[in-house]
Design a protein around this nucleic acid. Structure first.
Lengths: 171, 171
DNA sequence: TCCGACCTTGCGGATTTCGCAGATTCGGCC
DNA sequence: GGCCGAATCTGCGAAATCCGCAAGGTCGGA
């Protein structure tokens, strides 16, 4: 799933420097391009180039590279509630044994929208998006708690989503 | 000539009406358009039209309306860690008194990326995005814990982001 | 000095976007 | 049923954008 970084990377690709975890290092210009696309994901390359001081072709290449590397993706985001998913919850999970393998198992579930390994009284936090209460109950009780290595879970059902931003760097 | 999947438009529901909470009601075609744009936010209108059985112009109008209504937004999303924000945390908060006013105060903080009111042992969950440990410590201890009405907080510092999807409806 | 990575400029052609006018459909109303 | 207004869809040019490609320039590292 994260293989795209190393995938078709024969000789033409050039990440000058990578930090040791494999994530490419971004310069100020790429940052500025990302900011432009965070404001409007369909903004034309020429307009972005004017804003960041690059030619249209250069912007096009950088955007393509950022997408190929998986640094960013350009997508439509919605409020799940308006699209018909009425129940959401954050689930805190405690694990005995290999945390990462549990996290991988959660990642494979389509109802799980967000998985992060944390320090603190939970090992993993996972966000779940479901259509109704039955569906949510099924995912938590049947699918998650039954994973071998899951010691305990605690659920926080969403009552109201107050804020949801995608504008890192724009501040 | 175009007898596609969405053929039978006779009893089709094209209501642009609103359900009682003010959020517009989406029909199957708009759903399909959103799904297309969740896969690729820059997909051309003609390609979307071919996929959902509409003309290019019709797709364009519907997309524009969805954007105007705020049902969806087309943006670039990134992994904050690769964009220079090295410290993230989820903070569970317990409140005495009015929960919503505390949630509003959190919403106004630029470092707070995500705010949701929940049922369970926390009243509010808030995701924080910071540049370093000092910044994170400052936000949690100085800014959040000092809000009048905040009874207690518990922090979960992110170690590794495993999954981040924006594909509701695509399954 | 050579080479690789990257940017720029320029160029056409294919594709896409955009605005608008004319159909078509829907829902309400008599 | 029949009529009307609003919303929606379609078709179609014109303008803008995308996309690949080539030649040349710059910079820094081996």
């Amino acid at each position: 799933m994260h293989s795209e970084v190393v995938a078709s990377r024969s000789a033409d690709q050039r990440d000058s420097r990578e930090s040791r975890n494999g994530t490419p290092q971004l310069d100020a210009v790429s940052l500025a391009i990302i900011e432009q696309l965070q404001e409007d994901g369909r903004r034309p390359y020429a307009a972005i180039g004017k804003a960041v001081g690059l030619s249209e072709a250069a912007v096009r290449q950088r955007v393509q590279k950022l997408l190929d590397q998986g640094v960013m993706q350009i997508v439509a985001v919605t409020d799940p509630l308006t699209v018909g998913f009425r129940r959401q919850a954050m689930v805190g999970i405690n694990v005995e044994g290999d945390v990462e393998s549990i996290a991988d198992a959660l990642t494979d579930m389509s109802e799980v929208e967000y998985v992060v390994m944390t320090a603190g009284s939970f090992d993993i936090l996972a966000e779940i998006v479901c259509e109704d209460d039955d569906h949510l109950l099924d995912v938590i009780n049947k699918r998650i708690r039954s994973l071998p290595g899951v010691r305990s879970t605690e659920s926080f059902v969403y009552l109201k989503l107050k804020k949801q931003t995608y504008m890192w760097g724009t501040r």
